[in-house]
Amino acid sequence: MKTKITAFTMLFLFVLLMGCSGGDDGGSSCGKVESVTFSTTPAAVTLYFTGGNNANSFKVEYGPSGFTQGTGTSVVTSNTQVEITELIPSTTYDFYITGICSASESSAPYKLSSVTTQASQCTGTTSVQFGQLAPDQIDLQFTYSGGYAEYYEVEYGTAGFTLGTGTKTTTSFGTSSKNLTGIQASTTYDFYVRSSCVSGEKTPYVKFTYTTMNGCPKPFNLSSWIVSGSCNSGTATRAFSWSYLSGTPQSYTISIVQDATDNPAAGNTFETSTTGISISNMFCNWRVFYVKANCTGNDSSEWAGPYYF
């Protein structure tokens, strides 16, 4: 009788142990990823691997070589090929790849150690030029001295803002200009600009500061010509014109002076509601004119000029 009980007990323990046995994953049916390979660029690492049994997505955690798992940067993907971007050139990273089978079941992580990105190919200098024809818009023209830039990234805000908290925008692929709208007049802005090189690598941000024009910008494209008569006979009628692209001011004031060193506010002044005026019986020794815009209230632009005629 004792022999039968012992045999039954041993059989029960054997079945129990077989039921608990699961190989390397401690009984989990969520298989570990395998066959991991990779390729690198200066700013990215692409991982290729085979998913383990029952895994339907994968968590990739990465950080500088030697980082502690759980403290790195993580991405989750359903693909067995994943590109990790915005890395630092010539830097060594570790990767942990974990299969996810369900909300409560994951595989053991696969550790890929000591993957070094390529040396930088994006060593040129980024610069930008600012232009304004209207107080609420800015035109940006970018250049990159180190070759070809695929596009440019900009982050901007009022002077002194912290990088990462501003307004972000990019140029279209293959273009080097950007028009920004909704800009405040008479305001100093900081602009952080960087280039994206062909390799996908990006230059460091470069900071630029620019103060926008006031809400009543000055006219431009000044011109003048004789309409009729002659200056020598005292019968000359001369036309003056200019351009203005920022709305319609209440009026314009032009000033005619003898020399560019003269103060336009002390010259012969005339006022008009259009972007041009003709004046007769001018003095022949007066050879320079200025013009300013008169906007709402007492707001006037700076004098545009001098224009020699």
Rank of each mutant, 00 (worst) to 15 (best):
F95Q: 01
A55C: 15
F8S: 01
I183V: 14
F8P: 00
S104A: 13
S243T: 08
Y205E: 01
G182F: 10
C101W: 09
G99P: 11
Y290W: 14
C231H: 07
G157A: 05
T91Q: 11
V15F: 13
Y244K: 00
T125M: 04
A55S: 15
T50W: 09
L16I: 12
Y307A: 13
A236Q: 02
I279S: 13
F309G: 12
M18Q: 14
T123C: 06
F38A: 13
A304K: 11
K292Y: 12
L133A: 05
I226Y: 04
T188K: 00
S255Q: 08
I5S: 06
D262N: 14
C295P: 11
G305M: 14
L16F: 14
S251V: 08
N294Y: 11
S251P: 06
S251W: 08
E153W: 07
S127D: 06
T117Q: 06
M213W: 03
G267V: 09
G229K: 00
T274D: 03
F142K: 06
C231Q: 04
G51A: 12
T117A: 06
T181M: 03
T37S: 15
V45W: 12
C216E: 06
K32M: 15
L140R: 01
F208P: 00
Y192C: 05
S224Y: 01
N56D: 09
S195A: 15
A44V: 11
M213F: 03
N56A: 04
E201K: 11
P89Q: 03
N281H: 14
P89L: 06
F240Y: 15
N56Q: 04
D136R: 00
S196E: 10
S278E: 07
S120H: 14
Y210M: 07
N214C: 02
I277D: 10
A265S: 11
S228P: 00
F38W: 15
G276F: 15
A293V: 05
I5H: 05
D24Q: 13
L16S: 02
L140C: 04
G70T: 02
Y148R: 02
V154I: 11
T46C: 09
T212N: 01
L13G: 01
T46W: 12
T71Q: 11
A266Q: 11
A44L: 10
K202Y: 07
F58W: 14
S251E: 05
T92R: 01
N54C: 04
V33A: 12
F309P: 08
S228M: 01
G215M: 03
L13M: 15
I256G: 09
R194I: 07
T125F: 06
C30L: 13
K32Q: 15
F220W: 10
A119P: 03
T165C: 04
V75T: 12
